[in-house]
Simulated scan of single mutants.
Amino acid sequence: MSCFDQLCTSLSINRTYKMLIKINDVCRILKISRNTLYQLQKKDSSFPKPIKFGEKKQARIFYRADEIHTWVMSLNSIPSEMEFNNEGK
């Protein structure tokens, strides 16, 4: 079971990923704050786009669980800078 699956289970999120999840749940899954999530959206063009319900500024924002899952799994296949930095020592 992947880390994402375990977090979804602990948050009682359906593991079929065929659903929308709230921005707060995305923050819990990724273990980041809302501000960090907003910065991530700006920096990483591969991060899933939010779905906004309504035209107002304060409309609710959701994400597709399957897109978040795919994005998280793609991170596992990219070597981190930490791994490269530690190899040179």
Results as ranks from 00 to 15, higher is better:
2 S>M: 12
5 D>V: 12
5 D>T: 11
5 D>S: 14
6 Q>G: 02
6 Q>I: 13
7 L>D: 04
7 L>R: 09
7 L>K: 09
8 C>K: 03
9 T>G: 10
10 S>H: 12
13 I>M: 06
13 I>G: 02
13 I>L: 14
16 T>V: 05
16 T>A: 10
17 Y>C: 15
17 Y>G: 11
18 K>P: 01
18 K>R: 14
18 K>C: 00
19 M>N: 11
19 M>T: 04
19 M>Y: 10
21 I>Q: 01
24 N>D: 10
24 N>P: 08
24 N>G: 03
25 D>N: 10
25 D>R: 09
26 V>N: 02
26 V>F: 03
27 C>K: 03
28 R>H: 09
28 R>D: 04
30 L>G: 02
30 L>R: 03
32 I>W: 03
33 S>D: 06
34 R>P: 00
34 R>I: 08
35 N>P: 00
35 N>S: 11
35 N>I: 12
35 N>R: 14
37 L>G: 02
37 L>C: 06
37 L>A: 04
38 Y>C: 05
38 Y>K: 07
38 Y>N: 05
39 Q>M: 14
39 Q>A: 15
39 Q>I: 12
41 Q>D: 00
41 Q>V: 10
41 Q>T: 10
42 K>D: 03
42 K>V: 01
42 K>S: 08
42 K>L: 06
42 K>W: 05
44 D>R: 13
45 S>A: 08
45 S>H: 10
45 S>Y: 08
45 S>W: 00
45 S>Q: 12
46 S>M: 01
47 F>H: 13
49 K>H: 13
49 K>E: 02
49 K>P: 01
50 P>M: 08
50 P>F: 12
51 I>S: 06
51 I>L: 15
51 I>Y: 14
53 F>D: 05
53 F>E: 01
55 E>T: 11
55 E>L: 13
56 K>C: 09
57 K>A: 02
58 Q>T: 12
58 Q>F: 10
58 Q>N: 11
58 Q>E: 09
58 Q>D: 12
59 A>I: 11
59 A>G: 12
60 R>C: 07
60 R>T: 15
61 I>R: 09
61 I>V: 15
62 F>W: 13
62 F>I: 05
64 R>F: 04
64 R>P: 07
67 E>W: 11
67 E>L: 09
68 I>Q: 05
68 I>R: 06
71 W>E: 08
71 W>F: 11
72 V>S: 15
72 V>T: 01
72 V>R: 13
72 V>M: 15
73 M>P: 10
75 L>Q: 15
76 N>I: 00
76 N>P: 00
78 I>M: 06
78 I>G: 06
78 I>N: 06
79 P>F: 08
79 P>W: 04
80 S>T: 10
81 E>T: 02
81 E>F: 07
81 E>K: 08
83 E>F: 12
83 E>S: 13
85 N>R: 09
85 N>V: 12
85 N>Q: 08
87 E>L: 14
87 E>F: 12
87 E>I: 14
87 E>G: 03
88 G>P: 01
88 G>T: 13
88 G>C: 07
89 K>F: 14
89 K>G: 07
89 K>M: 07
89 K>P: 02
89 K>D: 04
